[in-house]
Design a protein around this nucleic acid. Structure first.
Length: 644
RNA sequence: GCCUCUGUAGCUCAGCUGGCUUAGAGCAGCUGAUUUGUAAUCAGCAGGUCGUGGGUUCGAGUCCCUCCAGAGGCUCCA
């Protein structure tokens, strides 16, 4: 007998050899049709596997994350089967499910494949799906597995098998296609109803750019066509929020081939927006005890030799700038911290001075591979909202916590609710990748973990993601297309104080080494603005947006009154302009609506006579007439709401 | 950097398999008319050596190659 315990705690008994699918069938036929996989005692397995004597069972459907990934993994196999049928001799590497869909990395030999070939593969997949072939699991010995793929002459699978232990290897077969696979899979290919192959890309075998480049085909599948259509619509919607598109439309920034790729040019409206963001942070930093400093855009090569960056990144940086006669080498600054270390050293420090907090919106230049550049999120010249805190080892945790507060304050004000905090620690298996003593690393890692815990911040720990000089805490936010970007970052550094021989005199009258904390709540202004644009779809908060109001005289007879209204509101720090174009009101409304102006104030005879404005709010339409006093009070309240 | 794709006026796009025109349209711009009441008033004008450089051809925006830039990935990210 098999005892099955369902998630609601109810118990059921089945005959020996019963499967999850049998359980589903005993509940309802409809459920059985939707079961993609099963979670048995915490492990995701095929719904067609016999259950153990006691099974805590959860039936997985499309509504479960693991159900979806099982479906997509099976889809990858289905695609592989189609490709093998269409392109005999294709070698297969790996084909996993991903966040949204799946891919398979393949080696087509000399054959080339393009977007135009995808419909044919889709068609073949649909044909094979229609055959409702079951996915059959087979345990196989390592020797037999090697034999099978040696005959197929597939060196990729052989390399994968090489890393597996005998006795743990399984094959899955559907139709005429067999693949090395851990599973699980959906019961049969007929579960895959709606198929879309989305793109082709190059991908290196095992992610190593020195190895074979494979062809990666991405796709996504759904149990119903309706869901595929919804997905495609969602992608279309997301594209409308893309900061590259909105940035161009709204006149925020641009790129020029002449200036150079990856070097953004901020247009007046974008610059105004950015300046407001910077001022917002400057105010918060002043309150938090930061002192502004300023450093130049280049620095002597020796500065970076001392910091260690030259040894690590020198080859992958912009080439040095030479003085014409002396041949001295200067580098475009790739980071601000070495300069700030020298600022620290400018005067002797006592423990009573610490912590010192140097802040600078510092523009840095990094050579990024051309294929990596992306709108404002990945550029070659960008401005960090940088600051470096120098403190005693005892102060690290407290300072770290204060920085977390600052980051959270910014995220809250800008309504970034869906962020992820990631603690990046050393890779314990590759200690040689890092500089600095074990003891310091341990101290730093402990401080970060404790500070994060004490702030009650929900975070994940990633090993091997630390910077080479210290562990860090990053705040990650997703863009419109669900790609994740790092915004805020806080990093502990025991290394630079050592290299720059930074000191302070302690209460014991001895010299001590301070600890340094690098931090940037926005990360970079460029990336932050990009993510902000996508986050709010170009409709910036009132306090931040460049033009809060547009005043629309109904005819040029009222231009003077409109100007009066603008002057009045300017006195209350309300920003905007008079739309005195020779156009009808309807046209002006439409244009300003398209430009995402939060408030339009329509003025004509009635308004002028009563010293009023007719208010139209973006998205909400006509709010009726208000006196000037009332409107300025109203908009002031709206702004206060946003900032508190 | 690598793989695949893309590149026509400021913007969005037409231009079929190379040949009738001096490469078209809408929006934006300029000029004029209109003096306008809650999402597009009308008319006219101007604007492009079709990303760049080569090649094939009697003839190329259209075919081929180089380079540049952009997109989606891979790798990387102090």
């Amino acid at each position: 007998m098999v005892e099955v315990i369902l998630p609601d705690g109810s118990k059921r008994e089945y005959d020996e050899g019963a499967t999850a699918l049998d359980v589903a069938l005993s509940i309802s036929e409809g459920l059985a049709r939707n079961v993609l996989a099963a979670e048995v005692n915490g492990e995701v397995v095929d719904a067609t596997r016999p259950l153990p004597a006691t099974a805590n069972l959860k039936l997985l459907t499309w509504n479960d994350k693991d159900g979806k990934s099982t479906m997509w993994h099976s889809s990858a196999h289905l695609m592989a089967e189609a490709i093998e049928a269409l392109y005999p001799g294709t070698k297969l590497a790996i084909g996993p499910s991903i966040d949204a869909g799946f891919y398979y990395d393949i080696d087509l030999g000399g054959h080339k494949i393009t977007d135009e070939d995808l419909p044919a593969i889709e068609k073949k997949m649909k044909e094979l799906a229609g055959q409702k072939n079951t996915f059959d699991r087979q345990e196989i010995s390592k020797a037999d597995a090697i034999k099978y793929f040696t005959e197929k002459d597939d060196e990729y699978k052989l390399e994968l098998i090489d890393g597996l232990d005998d006795g743990t290897i399984t094959f899955y077969t559907q139709g005429n296609f067999t693949d090395l696979c851990r599973g699980p899979h959906v019961p049969h290919t007929g579960f895959i109803k709606s198929i879309k192959l989305t793109s082709i890309a190059g991908a290196y075998w095992r992610g190593d750019e020195n190895r074979q480049q494979l062809t990666r085909i991405y796709g996504i599948t759904f149990p119903k066509n309706k869901e595929l259509n919804e997905y495609l619509e969602m992608i279309e919607e997301a594209k409308k929020r893309d900061h590259r598109k909105l940035g161009k439309e709204m006149g925020l920034f641009t790129f020029s081939q002449k200036v150079g790729q990856g070097l953004p040019l901020w247009l007046p409206k974008g610059a105004a927006l950015r300046e407001r963001l910077e001022n917002f942070l400057k105010v918060a930093q002043r309150k938090a005890g930061y002192e502004p400093v300023i450093s130049p855009h280049i620095g002597h090569k020796d500065l970076y030799v001392t910091s260690g960056h030259y040894a690590k990144y020198g080859e992958d940086s912009f080439r040095p700038i030479m003085t014409p006669h002396e041949g001295e080498e200067f580098l475009l600054k790739p980071m601000n911290c070495p300069h700030h270390c020298e600022i620290y050293k400018a005067t002797p420090k006592s423990y009573k001075d610490l912590p010192v907090r140097y802040a600078e919106f510092g523009t840095v230049y990094r050579y990024e591979q051309s294929g990596e550049l992306h709108g404002l999120t990945r550029v070659r010249g960008f401005t960090q909202d940088d600051a470096h805190l120098f403190c005693t080892p005892e102060q690290v945790k407290e300072e770290f916590k204060n920085v977390i507060d600052l980051v959270l304050y910014i995220f809250k004000t800008l309504k970034f609710e869906n962020f992820r905090a990631q603690i990046s620690l050393r890779d314990p298996d590759n200690p040689e990748k890092y500089i600095g003593s074990d003891e310091n690393w341990e101290k730093a890692e402990r401080s970060i973990i404790e500070a994060t815990e004490e702030k009650g911040l929900d975070s994940v720990i990633e090993y091997g993601e630390a910077a080479f000089y210290g562990p860090k805490l990053d705040f990650m936010v997703k863009d419109a297309l669900n790609r994740e970007w790092q915004l805020g970052t806080i990093q502990v550094d025991y290394n630079l104080p050592e290299r720059f021989e930074l000191e302070y005199v302690g209460a014991d009258n001895e010299r001590h080494r301070p600890v340094m904390i690098h931090r940037a709540p926005f990360g970079s202004m460029e990336r932050f603005v990009a993510v902000l644009i996508e986050h709010c779809g170009g409709k910036f908060p009132l306090w931040l947006t460049t033009d809060q109001i547009a005043i629309l005289p109904v005819s040029e007879k009222y231009n003077d009154y409109a100007q009066k209204v603008l002057n009045y509101l300017n006195n209350y720090d309300i920003r905007g302009f008079v739309d005195d174009r020779n156009e009808k009101v309807g046209k002006k409304i439409r244009d300003n609506e398209v430009d995402k102006i939060p408030f339009m104030l329509i003025v004509g005879e009635k308004e002028e006579d009563n010293n009023e404005v007719s208010v139209r709010k973006q998205g909400d339409g006509d709010l009726g007439a208000m006196s000037l006093e009332k409107f300025s009070e109203f908009i002031g309240q709206e702004i206060d709401k946003e900032l508190n």
